[in-house]
Design a protein around this nucleic acid. Structure first.
Lengths: 338, 338
DNA sequence: GTGAAAGCGCTAACAC
DNA sequence: GTGTTAGCGCTTTCAC
């Protein structure tokens, strides 16, 4: 282990400037009474010496680390990437930094991540939950460790939540198709246990019951990710060997939509001529793919930024907030009037 | 500010277990001599009390934070997202966590990010540099603060580097087109000052000089990102009002390639029938777009993982490493034999 | 306004 | 093997 140069401490600044450690601390921390002139002198010495405060030390003393933990399923997923960015940007404004940990959809990893972050004494956690189990989250709530959950809700856990309006989103997607005279819908949903999956399906069904009860709806459920979505969908259409019989497909999210589009193209089924596709999230590539994807847009950076702000409120005042952000339908070229 | 429950400390564990603080510390830290039996008792008490080590405290004492700072241009860029993931995964194995900061392509932000991370006493930094200026990096090197730079090199800075073989990549892309009888190439490159931009262009030129010196090459330079790439390219082809005259386009990266593809499609120029397109990076969506993109694949998670490992080596032994990772051409449907 | 002294939770040296 | 003591760099009383 290479010897590392010691950093300049407040003590060094005190010695050189001739003031006490304490006065230096106050001057540097903009806190308590310090004569203007004294402060200037101290700041000068500090900057000359290249002083940099040691956050770990002040965190230890003040019990405020100014760090928040961010636990996500997968930071390479464009949706989470944007959420993370939202958190990071907002955190920066408040003088906070974020420690990022991926769980790769594993509950055990989620549990471990939380453990690690607590050891680091993060002031709070922002979590996009794996949702297969939630004992780890329950523990946070029980121990009153500030936390915000993004993108899902658990009835049994009273805590801070930030979600998109998933039900409304499902509703808008289905409404768009129904109003454009689609009659045979397929919903390629995520796994049933997921909150967003349930809500989006609810919205779809509501639209049907309101707008056209005679429209047909079939629902299939797929694990997360492009490959799983592709496999599930392909298996489904291969089983129904007869002609492909849907005129509109609503997908759990844009990545699923891409998978569906790929499978359809491979089979010579044209989009949107033969079948319309609607996605969810409006990730970056949705406007680029061919045809560009009609989708329900969620405000991902805002999801992150609001989560951070709610976390701060929770830390400061103990307030508990459930926030649902609006969604909007973005119509592009993957859907058509029939 | 809500009062927060104090965490259990080593002192509490000492009191309850009847051993000294020190013995407890050793037992919990797996360090020094502790009788097996004693250790078990202590661990039992610790777990009953819900003890969790305070990393900030031990970091202060040992001067090892077990944190590394990760500074990227933009975590939502699929390339960086994968690099980050590689770092994070590797860091986890070593018991490290990462603090992530975005710079949004601003040198000032990069400088600030480094400042913040140093205050947090990260053990080292992994940086994808903005490259417009590098005084901040120079400072790191001068002050011997462990750091690894990903994706670019600076002649004047002797430090750790991890890059993909950009020159080889450019070479492979051009070779592929030339060998498939393309004669009029366009390189849509990133800004000239960028390391990867220079190297990739070098590779392209080398291929031409080796394989077909009579092939034409034009180069245009664009700022980063889809929108900039699109604008630059459109402006370029609008200027050349005559018929579009290239039979192969090599793009700085896949995102540029998507932008180019979009602009071409809008003008009824067919890919690959009229013009072939080659990208760089092989991000996730490159296999999904239509037509799927021929591209030079870089191993992004490995770039991150290796950067972390090199950082560890540098911290432990002071070793300085420059690593270039191999690239490979992935041929898909955006290129064709002429 | 400024300084002295205590202590955050932990680990390292050194006794015993 | 275990305990005593000091101290990492900072902030927080509380004197003066």
């Amino acid at each position: 282990m290479v010897k590392k140069k010691d950093f300049v401490t407040i003590k060094d600044v005190a010695k050189i400037s001739g003031y006490s450690i304490n006065t230096v601390s106050r001057a540097l921390g903009n806190r308590g009474y310090v004569k203007r002139e004294t402060k200037e002198k101290i700041l000068k010495v500090a900057s000359e010496l290249g002083y940099m405060r040691n956050c770990a030390a002040s965190a230890l003393r003040t019990k405020r680390s100014h760090i928040v933990g961010v636990v996500v399923v997968d930071n390479t997923n464009p949706f989470y990437a944007e959420v993370i960015k939202g958190v990071e940007l907002e955190a920066k404004k408040y003088g906070y930094t974020i420690i990022l940990i991926n769980t790769d959809r594993s509950y055990e990893n989620e549990e471990k991540a939380i453990e690690i972050l607590l050891q680091r004494r993060v002031e709070g956690l922002i979590i996009t939950a794996v949702q297969t189990k939630n004992d780890d989250l329950k523990r946070l709530v029980d121990e009153k460790i500030p936390n915000v959950i993004i993108g899902s809700k658990f009835d049994e856990l009273v805590t801070n939540y930030v979600c998109s309006d998933d039900e409304k989103g499902g509703y808008l997607a289905a409404k768009h198709l129904l109003e454009n005279n689609h009659k045979k819908l397929l919903l390629v949903n995520a796994e049933k246990y997921k909150y967003a999956s349930k809500m989006r399906e609810l919205g779809v069904r509501k639209a049907i019951s309101e707008i056209n009860v005679s429209a047909k709806l079939e629902v299939i459920y797929s694990k997360d990710g492009f490959d799983n979505g592709y496999d599930t969908f392909v298996k489904f259409i291969e089983k129904n060997k007869t002609k492909f019989e849907y005129d509109g497909i609503i997908c759990y999210n844009d990545v699923y939509a891409f998978a569906v589009m790929k499978a359809l193209k491979e089979r010579g089924i044209r989009i949107p001529d033969d079948v319309s596709i609607v996605g969810f999230d409006d990730i970056y590539f949705s406007s680029i793919v061919e045809p560009s994807l009609t989708t329900v847009r969620t405000d991902k950076p805002k999801l992150g930024a609001e989560a951070f702000r709610i976390l701060m409120n929770n830390i400061e005042s103990g307030s508990v907030t459930e926030l649902t952000l609006p969604v909007e339908l973005v119509v592009r070229n993957s859907t058509i009037k029939r």
